[in-house]
C-alpha cells in the first residue's frame, strides 16, 4: 500500500496558471481585490484548494494574483496528499502557503496535526508547529 512515499509534501508549481470558480464574485477594481464566495475552488497544476470564501489580491499595478486568503475551513489536495485547516494564505508570487488553526496533514495512513503549517509549493518542503501530533505505523519499512 502506498505509504512508502511518506510526507512527500504537497509539491506543485506556483508559476502555473490559476483558475478560480465560485458561486458568487464581487470585484473591487479600485483596490485591486476580489471576493469569491460559495464553494470556491482554485486549481493550479496538480494542486487543488477549496474553501467557502476566498479573497484574492491582484498584483499591485500589474496583472496576475498576488495572494489568496481563504477562510471558513480550507482543504488543499495534491494526489494522495491532503491538508486542511481553518484558514490559509497562499502567496502565489513566493509559492508559500501558511495554514493556521487545527491544521491536519494526511498522506495515506500517516497524519500530522498541529496549529500552524508553513509550506513551499515549489520545493514541497514545509514545517508544522504548535505541539504537533504525528501518527505513523512502525515496521512498515523494509
Amino acid at each position: 500500500q502506498g505509504t512508502d512515499v511518506a510526507f512527500a509534501g504537497l509539491k506543485g508549481d506556483s508559476s502555473a496558471p490559476v483558475e478560480i470558480e465560485s458561486d458568487k464574485l464581487e470585484v473591487n477594481q479600485a483596490e485591486g481585490f476580489a471576493i469569491f464566495t460559495g464553494n470556491v475552488r482554485v486549481k493550479q497544476g496538480p494542486m487543488r484548494m477549496a474553501a467557502p470564501q476566498m479573497r484574492v489580491d491582484q498584483v499591485a499595478g500589474g496583472t496576475g494574483i498576488e495572494r489568496i486568503h481563504a477562510t471558513g475551513g480550507v482543504t488543499l489536495a495534491n494526489g494522495a496528499e491532503a491538508a486542511e485547516s481553518r484558514e490559509a494564505t497562499y502567496t502565489v508570487s513566493t509559492g508559500e502557503i501558511v495554514m493556521t488553526t487545527d491544521v491536519l496533514l494526511t498522506q495515506g495512513a500517516n497524519t500530522i496535526a498541529g496549529q500552524r503549517l508553513v509550506f513551499d509549493i515549489d520545493s514541497g518542503t514545509g514545517r508544522m508547529e504548535g505541539r504537533v501530533q504525528t501518527v505513523y505505523k512502525p515496521g512498515s519499512g523494509q
Binding site: T125, G126, R127, E129, R131
Partner: peptide, 14 residues
C-alpha cells in the same frame, strides 16, 4: 500505530 508529539515537525519533501 505509534504517536509522536513535538513542538515542531519539518516536512522535508522526501
Amino acid at each position: 500505530k505509534a504517536a509522536l508529539v513535538a513542538d515542531s515537525v519539518a516536512i522535508t519533501g522526501d
